[in-house]
Nucleic acid binder design. Sequence first.
DNA 1: AAATCAATCAACACTGTGTTGATTAGAAAA
DNA 2: TTTTCTAATCAACACAGTGTTGATTGATTT
Lengths: 198, 198
Amino acid sequence: MQESYIDLRIARTKSAIRDALTKLIEEKGFESLTVKDITTRAGINRGTFYLHYRDKYDLLKKCQKEIMDDISKIVQKGFLRDIVSKNSATIPFHFSVSIFEYLDKHGDFMKALLGPKGDLSFHNMWKSVFENNLNNFIKRENLLVPEEYLISYIASAHLGVIQQWLHNGRKESPKEMAKILSSINLNGPIVAAGLKND
Amino acid sequence: MQESYIDLRIARTKSAIRDALTKLIEEKGFESLTVKDITTRAGINRGTFYLHYRDKYDLLKKCQKEIMDDISKIVQKGFLRDIVSKNSATIPFHFSVSIFEYLDKHGDFMKALLGPKGDLSFHNMWKSVFENNLNNFIKRENLLVPEEYLISYIASAHLGVIQQWLHNGRKESPKEMAKILSSINLNGPIVAAGLKND
DNA sequence: AAATCAATCAACACTGTGTTGATTAGAAAA
DNA sequence: TTTTCTAATCAACACAGTGTTGATTGATTT
């Protein structure tokens, strides 16, 4: 079996483009960077960029799609496991760990895109992932507050913690982070803040 | 006392520009819109725009600064009240109501800027407001989780609920929204979701 | 009614875009 | 190795939007 479906030149060019993209997003933010910036940084001709991507938005979209496809697989795995275990009393801990492990693996790119100069639509994709997941676990009969606000609350909170973790340089392990999240979720932020002895 | 410090023509032009900005952000997002778009929509000459703003970023910055100045005043008022009442056991309810009332008053602009096609730096400004406020209320001795993650969690969660509320057309009253937030904060999201009887 | 100054308009150079066609060079296949 | 591909290069193009200029118009103020 021949493995040479990809030309080495293409692989080199593409990874140079994506490395340049990651760095430039952190430096000046996605909207401020130009195709010229990317190709200069990547050390390739500007025309070459257009052989692979329609424009900088197309590049970003393709990078993000790869990420979200991976995440879908992780979500599916977690979903199957939960069907088996039938334990939906808490936001699944193992799913949470898997997510942090994935984020860790793609740390630089994630930090750039989920950071303060990142891409808002990518933020929203992540929120949607959490929102969809929450829909599978919420018991609609017992809600103390409107479902939509509860879901927004949790999804945004989780994204916020992830962003903070990426910003801090990912010092805590994925397991530690999952524990922190589940601790706040279970006790509630007020108890976690030590403002109420429950 | 003469009130005519501002020329009517300037006032008209500026409000036309800001109305156009609000609508265009909702339609195509801030980054995609051009100065030409704004002036065409506002019915003014493109050159006129540059008499008032350096570029579209300057316009956005000035709009946002007005908002954040107002918010600072609201925060200060709340802070003074809390010094008097000494009741810091909960995230202050009245502060929360004031914020929702302010957001309601500037609903269209807020929805545009805090929405999915809005401006990330404005999102971050709001998060900072919440984070700074939380720093005044957290008891650092009793924390169950690292302070920074707890703060990120709450700040992001609150912004998320606000965004959802703006997106939904602000159907609930500011008081209702403040109640919803404090309910989740006090009980914790898991209890609020009916997944644990506490 | 006169003075003031915001707004208009046309023209300018400049930067980045996306596409073209001819050429070069490096990877794959013989 | 040599030959064959084809990715990458390069220069040139029209086009969009930018930010600035100087002369002119006209609404508002005094």
